[in-house]
């Protein structure tokens, strides 16, 4: 169940961490990815809301590292390690990456969801963090919430209700 308690919010192109108790959530994931990393022993949980697959396309002056899959994942891992989590225990879960609007034969922008998923998986493999659960794709939005005391990820969508993994 998604209940109101101490909830740490993660905005779009943002990341955050919680320890021991409380939950961390991000709302309204469309083509964006909500990726969580969790150390079950220390109960340290981190979440990032990734918007774009690669910082190569960035044209901004000051790079927001939480926005791009290739920069956000290593940064989140660093944050967890900084709090004492061990990279060998950390496991990842992710949700999102949907294609909200189905257009025939349009360019890369419209395929951004699947590209975000691919990019996150690639980076996780590179960081040697196992992806133990995912709920990606489809054409609907998701809100996700990770419980730091259990490591369970709750995923809510308008059409299918709440599921946990």
């Amino acid at each position: 169940m998604i209940e109101e308690q101490s909830i740490v919010k993660v905005g779009m192109a943002d990341m955050n961490v919680v320890q021991r108790s409380g939950t961390i959530r991000t709302v309204g994931l469309g083509s964006c990815i909500g990726l969580t990393m969790y150390d079950p022993q220390l109960k340290v949980a981190g979440m990032v809301h990734v918007m774009l697959p690669s910082s190569d396309i960035a044209r901004e002056g000051q790079l927001n590292i939480a926005k791009y899959a290739d920069t956000a994942l290593p940064a989140l891992l660093d944050k967890l390690v900084h709090l004492g989590a061990s990279p060998s225990r950390i496991v990842a879960k992710m949700a999102g990456g949907s294609q909200m609007f189905a257009f025939a034969g349009t360019g890369d922008t419209m395929r951004i969801g699947p590209r975000n998923v691919e990019s996150c998986k690639l980076k996780l493999a590179e960081l040697q963090i196992p992806l133990i659960a995912e709920d990606t794709g489809g054409n609907y939005g998701r809100t996700i919430e990770l419980d730091a005391s259990t490591g369970i990820l709750y995923i809510r969508s308008v059409h299918t209700g709440v599921k946990e993994m």
Binding site: M12, A13, V27, G28, L29, G30, S31, C32, M51, L52, I57, A58, R59, E60, K67, S98, M100, F101, T109, I112, Y140, G141, R142, T143, V158, H159
Partner: peptide, 16 residues
């Protein structure tokens, strides 16, 4: 669907 999920599509060009 959720407004956030829908509107984020219009922000990708700005996101860069």
């Amino acid at each position: 669907d959720m407004a956030g999920a829908i509107l984020s599509y219009g922000l990708l060009q700005f996101g860069q």
